[in-house]
Amino acid sequence: MGNYAVKKKRNLKEKIGLLLFLILIICIIYVAAMIIISPTEAESDAEYVRVKSDYVLSLLQCALGLIVMFIPSIIEKKISIDIPDSMEILYFTFLFSAIVLGEVRDFYYVIPYWDKILHAFSAGMLASLGFVLVAIFKKTERLKYYLSPLYIALFSFCFALTIGVVWEIYEYLADGLLSLNMQKYALADGTKLIGREALADTMDDLIVDTLGALVITILGYFSLKKQEDRNQNSN
């Protein structure tokens, strides 16, 4: 029964991964066509319409999504570890929500706090991944030293925040090199924000990352602590 459940979840993961791959390919074709036919700048007296730079951002995100969706399988092959299928399904779900819904379908502007929801989700997912990686390395005996629940929780917390910071650096560089608006320093109509408002999106993202990772690491810490106490009492 256990093997059947594992196979069923693995098949589900593979189907979701294939579906995401096909959707991203379709999105790339669609966005590339929109780059050709969309205006370079919106008319000042017209309602907001997406311009070429908006679709360039979508194309960049879709192309990046095609690359990063294979990161789990590459890690599994290079390091010879098995990332849980449920974790990969969450990862594919996040990519779909962030790229297809967020960028291509414009959910970042249409759905209030969509960006913050995804940041909280990704931070929690990455913190969980930190716990999973430590557990995998302990199981394969690659970690020969005792790691306390507090140390593992701290590692998971820092792991999630580091990825969040790297993402903000990527957004900053992309905005500077390609004249995009990933850090939302401008409104949807192109109006530039100034002062503290221009920094708000980046700082809000980092704060949400911190809170999302903190919740999961606290839960993970108490779970590991409870498991450790149970093992000591049984011995």
Rank of each mutant, 00 (worst) to 15 (best):
3 N>Y: 11
6 V>T: 15
7 K>C: 06
8 K>Y: 09
9 K>C: 09
10 R>D: 14
13 K>N: 11
16 I>S: 01
18 L>Q: 15
25 I>P: 00
43 E>G: 13
47 E>V: 10
49 V>H: 11
51 V>K: 01
59 L>Q: 00
60 L>E: 03
61 Q>E: 13
72 P>M: 02
73 S>N: 05
77 K>E: 13
80 S>Q: 14
82 D>V: 11
85 D>I: 04
88 E>I: 10
89 I>E: 02
90 L>Q: 05
94 F>S: 06
95 L>F: 00
96 F>L: 13
97 S>D: 02
100 V>A: 03
102 G>V: 02
107 F>D: 00
112 P>W: 04
123 A>W: 04
124 G>C: 11
135 A>W: 02
136 I>K: 07
142 R>S: 12
148 S>E: 13
150 L>G: 13
157 F>T: 00
157 F>M: 07
158 C>I: 13
159 F>N: 05
166 V>F: 14
169 I>Y: 09
183 Q>R: 09
197 E>C: 03
199 L>Q: 10
202 T>R: 04
208 V>N: 01
212 G>T: 07
213 A>G: 05
217 T>F: 00
217 T>P: 05
220 G>D: 00
222 F>L: 07
223 S>R: 12
225 K>P: 04
226 K>F: 12
230 R>K: 09
232 Q>D: 15
232 Q>C: 09
233 N>I: 13
